[in-house]
């Protein structure tokens, strides 16, 4: 287990470095830079050049990259010119809002998704299964920006039950969390369904029944634990998509998290914020993947022993 863990940690560092470098390259390829955006369209070429020199943007790209990498290792992503503060401070300030949003969506998606998945999967082909499978297919196909707007129209404008935008309170949280949870719920439900359907046809489920256990005990003691293993893997892989979804959903609902910060920072070419936020998201994703592997090792003794079968 320990050498495996060490290898995984090495891979994590490599992945984060990849995300870091890719962001750097993409930002340099994108037209315009901080100097042109900061000074606006009326600025003279001389002014822009002067600011570039001041910001160090005229130096060779490779040197900029080394500098950036060097300070990133210490957690320093430079100063945001928009907020006149350290980028990390700005990002970490917004971070809790995103965590609350993502966590609410995850809890919602897991609760509803697992329930629907188990219901559908234990009687594949029956009416319950067909209704649930149909619904989850639609839920998975709807893009969050559209479902978000539809929810605003219905809940905020027509029914006037919830505020359409803003952040902080619980009532502000509901709509963005639901929007973010819709495709995630569908994903969890669909994976759980196929996993439960597969596991309940395994011979050891018959063995459990042959002991005279109730269907409930068969399901909870034998089927669910084995069904959950692929779900954990998929959920952890989906955390990245969830963070991506948060970027859009935060924008739609004016939720002041890292996502909306990132979107405005890209527009403003606020390199420090974009790079810092991307790295933070990358770290979250790889950490969640590691966590999922640890959870699975906990659930399945064969994974713990490194047995592949």
């Amino acid at each position: 287990m320990l050498p495996q863990l060490a290898r995984r940690l090495g891979l994590m560092v490599f992945t984060v470095w990849g995300a870091l470098s890719l962001t750097f390259v993409i930002l340099r390829i994108a037209p315009g830079d901080q100097a042109t955006v900061q000074l606006g369209p009326e600025a003279t070429a001389a002014d822009v050049a002067a600011l570039r020199t001041e910001l160090g943007l005229d130096r060779p790209v490779f040197l900029q990259y080394l500098d950036y990498l060097g300070s990133a290792v210490t957690g320093d992503f430079g100063e945001s010119y928009r907020f006149h503060d350290s980028a990390m401070t700005v990002i970490l300030d917004r971070f809790p809002a995103t965590v609350v949003l993502a966590l609410s969506a995850t809890v919602l998606a897991l609760t509803v998704g697992l329930l629907l998945g188990v219901l559908a999967g234990r009687s594949p082909g029956r009416l319950t299964d067909r209704v649930i499978s149909g619904c989850t297919l639609v839920m998975q196909a709807i893009p969050p920006f559209w479902s978000g707007i539809m929810l605003i129209l219905l809940m905020a404008l027509t029914l006037r039950l919830l505020p359409s935008a803003g952040s902080g309170d619980l009532e502000h949280l509901v709509l963005p969390a639901v929007t973010l949870a819709i495709p995630f719920t569908a994903l969890v439900a669909r994976i759980t369904r196929s996993s439960v359907a597969e596991v309940t046809s395994e011979p050891y489920i018959q063995t459990a029944r042959s002991k005279g256990l109730s269907e409930r005990a068969v399901l909870t003691r034998h089927a669910v634990r084995n069904s959950v293993i692929p779900v954990v893997t998929m959920v952890s892989l989906h955390i990245g998509t969830l963070m991506g979804g948060a970027v859009i959903v935060e924008q739609v609902f004016a939720w002041e998290g890292v996502g909306s910060l990132l979107v405005s920072a890209v527009g403003n070419r606020d390199y420090a914020i974009v790079q810092g936020a991307t790295v933070l998201i990358a770290i979250i994703v790889v950490t969640m993947n590691l966590l999922a592997d640890l959870v699975n090792a906990r659930l399945d003794p064969r994974i713990r022993a490194g047995v592949t079968s």
């Binding site: 018959q206 063995t207 034998h222 634990r225 084995n226 003794p301």
Partner: peptide, 13 residues
């Protein structure tokens, strides 16, 4: 009941 294949008839977890 004693089932046919003990490698699949026992719960792996």
């Amino acid at each position: 009941v004693v089932f046919q294949d003990p490698s699949t008839a026992l719960n792996p977890t």
